[in-house]
Design a protein around this nucleic acid. Structure first.
Lengths: 143, 143
DNA sequence: ATAATAAAAGATAAAAAACTCTTTTATTTA
DNA sequence: TAAATAAAAGAGTTTTTTATCTTTTATTAT
């Protein structure tokens, strides 16, 4: 579905959104433990997310990652598009380049509905909307 | 979504279902041209599908691939499970091993509905049900 | 029997994805 | 201003996926 990189990215950003809510930066160590991801791999991913503007960072003591007001408004669809592209939202289930209404693959009609639902779900979820449920332990990001 | 191997496998089996309807075996050359897949890769995949019983084959002149009565009843879900496993139908969108009703990830509740629809779509599609639409050029398997 | 045909098997090769390690740069605080 | 901290950057490595090539085996028709 999503690449591993994208799975970790989504989990990391939701984690940062919740942990930095009070204005405190979140370090890599806290993040990789909090979402149970390989430390140096998540470091690389955070670097990319920062470069692409999906998260913000500061170096040095008390440094770490956080989300500015704009980044808090991002949706999960924004993350997926940035990391995996929009193949998931527009591509053919059977990998055909020309698959469309006028040249459909056998699954096209049914698949496009599901693809659309997936897109809607991710477009309608902001990265910060899970903060309270996470804090209450009703939703989880590791294991 | 599906692995490339699985995409080719589905396209190949649907192709064989249609072309072998009249009892004539379909050769590798006809298949790889018919679904626009790399020849030696699709040969390997057909080999695996044959070993796993999803298609049948005969060697030698007039040989090739076909589907017996049982194989015609297989669904696309059967192919996906055989090639990619059932991760797509049961796995967590964010890659969490323990994600479930009792320990859900942030996407669990919404994702499980979509996952289920995907499963239903594939379970309710037999490999032979596209034969006439393909023959009429209403559905496509290459490009 | 022999030649021709076509898939099976086995062994590699290339490319992409997942993951690691080391060095550098920026920032803070003592 | 020096030491400590923490992310950025760069350069690998490993694993998995995708793809290719060669040889063998089975079947058919001459």
């Amino acid at each position: 579905m999503f690449s591993k990189t994208c799975e970790y990215a989504i989990r990391a950003i939701i984690f940062i959104a919740q942990k930095s809510e009070n204005g405190v930066n979140v370090g890599i160590k806290e993040i990789f433990k909090g979402i149970n991801a390989p430390e140096s791999f998540i470091a690389k991913i955070l670097q990319e997310l920062s470069r692409k503007g999906l998260i913000q960072s500061v170096k040095g003591p008390n440094g770490g990652f956080f989300l500015d007001e704009e980044s808090k408004k991002n949706t999960l669809a924004d993350i997926v598009k940035t990391i995996d592209g929009d193949k998931l939202f527009t591509g053919c289930a059977l990998g055909l380049k020309n698959c469309s209404e006028i040249e459909p693959c056998p699954l096209h009609d049914e698949f496009k509905v599901i693809r659309q639902q997936m897109h809607n779900m991710l477009r309608n979820s902001t990265v910060a909307e899970f903060n309270t449920e996470l804090a209450q332990g009703l939703k989880h990001l590791k294991r």
